[in-house]
Each structure stands twice: as structure tokens, then as C-alpha cells.
């Protein structure tokens, strides 16, 4: 029996879909059988992050409505045989599915897969209700900004009200330079304010934009810092104790390169 994890945030645009694609891929790279589920009906994006947009025939709504079987809607990843995508409909809205139908769907997936990662839409309405319906655990994504942290707190309250007590926090888009100057909330500030366990710290990384352009999650790029942070998150999800990344940026420029040659740590 697999584990279903919903990736949620309250506030939009903080990195839920990026997180879902990267964690799903990283868990598959670690040998798990994984399915990533797009629960953002009407605004689907997860297919783009994985570069699978041209392979979609059926979707989640078709499965729920009985137009096709679950197996027919699952799309196998290009790179990893043990990674699948369950896309959603782009031309329907969130009321096309009920929480009960979603719960049933996730329960069916749990029989086939080790991990089911669900990409939740922004907000606290119907789409949120659907995305969390079948979940055993939740990952709350936030960024170091007051509005995102406030919304994360609201979501944590909502999850607890539903009895979803197994929730952990991912802080995305940390800019080390700014936290060092005291101009951005740091990790301690946020874990202090939000009563939730920390699962990962993802640095701001241009490689995220590049990998989204290409449809290849950053975890497949050895040199991406965000990718490395997401690979660590995947190992923590599997129960491994992994120390948090040192966010100190590598010094750049010629002088720094020379320093690096002479002062190898």
C-alpha cells in the first residue's frame, strides 16, 4: 500500500507544481514506483514541468466520469520507467470532481504505487478539498514572504481541522544573500512562527526556470542547487535523516575561483 502526499500552499505561485514534479522525479530516481497527480483542474501545468504535454490523451476527469480506465490515463515518463503522470482536464473546472471521487481514485492508485504526489491548486476552495481528500500526508510550501507565510498558517489550520496532522514544511526561494543582510525572513524565523516540522529548504535558483523551459525537472541536473535540495527532500520523505543544505552561495568570479583552487575545503 502506497503513501499519498498532497503538495499545498494556500497562496498561489509559491512553487507547488515545481515541488511536485521534482519530488516525484527524485523519488522515482531513488527506485520508487511513483505517480504525480495534477489536481489543478482547469489550470493544469504539471505535464509541462515533466515535458509530457504532448502525450496526454485521457485525464483524471475522464477516469472519474468512466470514459476510460485509470491505466489508460496514466502517462509514463520519458526518462524514468517507474514514474507516471495522471494529468487533469484543462477545459473543465474544479467542480467536475467531488472529494469522494478523488478519495476513491487515490485509494486505487495506492494499490499500484509506492508514492502518490498530488499537486494542489492555490486557494482553500473546492480544488483544495479535492486535492487533500485522499491524502495521508501533506507538504506545505511557502516562500519567505509575509503573505505566503500567513496563507501557509491558514492551510495548516485547515489540514488539522481535517485530521491531516502529518504535515511538513518546504521553504522555497530562499535567497541567502538577503537573509544574511536581515532583509528576508530566515529559516528559524519561519519555523518559529509556524508550528510545523521542516522538510526542506529550497534556494532561489535560475536553473528552475531553465528546467521548466525544457520540461526536465531540476533534480535531473547534477549542478542545480534547488535540484540537490529536492533530492534531499525525497530522501527525507523515505525516512532517511539528511542534514539541511548549507545555503551559503559558492563565491563567484575570478578571484573566487582562484581562492577555490588554493583553499579547497
Amino acid at each position: 500500500m502506497g503513501v499519498a502526499i498532497v503538495v499545498t500552499s494556500g497562496k498561489g505561485g509559491v512553487g507547488k507544481t515545481t515541488t511536485t514534479a521534482n519530488i516525484g522525479t527524485a523519488l522515482a530516481m531513488l527506485g520508487n514506483k511513483v505517480v504525480v497527480v495534477d489536481a489543478d483542474t482547469g489550470l493544469r501545468n504539471l505535464d509541462l514541468h515533466l515535458g509530457l504535454e504532448n502525450r496526454i490523451v485521457y485525464n483524471l476527469v475522464d477516469v472519474v466520469e468512466g470514459t476510460c480506465r485509470l491505466k489508460q490515463a496514466l502517462i509514463k515518463d520519458k526518462r524514468f520507467d517507474n514514474l507516471f503522470l495522471l494529468p487533469t482536464a484543462q477545459t473543465k473546472d474544479k467542480t467536475a470532481v467531488t472529494p469522494e471521487q478523488m478519495q476513491k481514485l487515490i485509494d486505487d492508485l495506492k494499490k499500484e504505487f509506492d508514492y502518490i504526489i498530488i499537486d494542489c491548486p492555490a486557494g482553500i476552495e473546492h480544488g483544495f478539498e479535492n486535492a487533500v481528500a485522499g491524502a495521508d500526508r501533506a507538504i506545505v510550501v511557502t516562500t519567505p514572504e509575509v503573505s505566503a507565510v500567513r496563507d501557509a498558517d491558514r492551510i495548516i489550520g485547515k489540514l488539522e481541522a481535517k485530521g491531516l496532522e502529518d504535515h511538513q514544511l518546504i521553504i522555497n526561494r530562499i535567497k541567502y544573500e538577503m537573509t544574511k543582510k536581515g532583509e528576508m525572513l530566515n529559516i528559524d524565523d519561519m519555523t518559529d512562527i509556524l508550528a510545523i516540522k521542516l522538510l526542506g529548504i529550497i534556494p532561489e535558483d535560475e536553473k528552475i526556470v531553465i528546467s521548466t523551459n525544457r520540461g526536465e525537472p531540476a533534480v535531473t541536473d547534477e549542478n542545480s542547487k534547488a535540484g540537490k535540495a529536492y533530492r534531499n527532500v525525497a530522501r527525507r520523505i523515505m525516512g532517511e535523516e539528511v542534514p539541511f543544505l548549507d545555503l551559503e552561495e559558492e563565491p563567484s568570479g575570478l578571484l573566487a575561483s582562484i581562492k577555490k583552487i588554493f583553499f579547497k575545503k
Partner: peptide, 19 residues
């Protein structure tokens, strides 16, 4: 005062009301 300390104080108060 560093802006992050202002942010933290404001957040603490907002969350008390929200919660």
C-alpha cells in the same frame, strides 16, 4: 531594524488574529 524582524513581528500579530 532589519526588515525581516519587522516582518516577523507583524506576522506574529496577524497570526494571533487569524488563528
Amino acid at each position: 531594524t532589519p526588515s525581516k524582524d519587522v516582518a516577523k513581528e507583524r506576522l506574529k500579530l496577524i497570526l494571533i488574529h487569524d488563528r
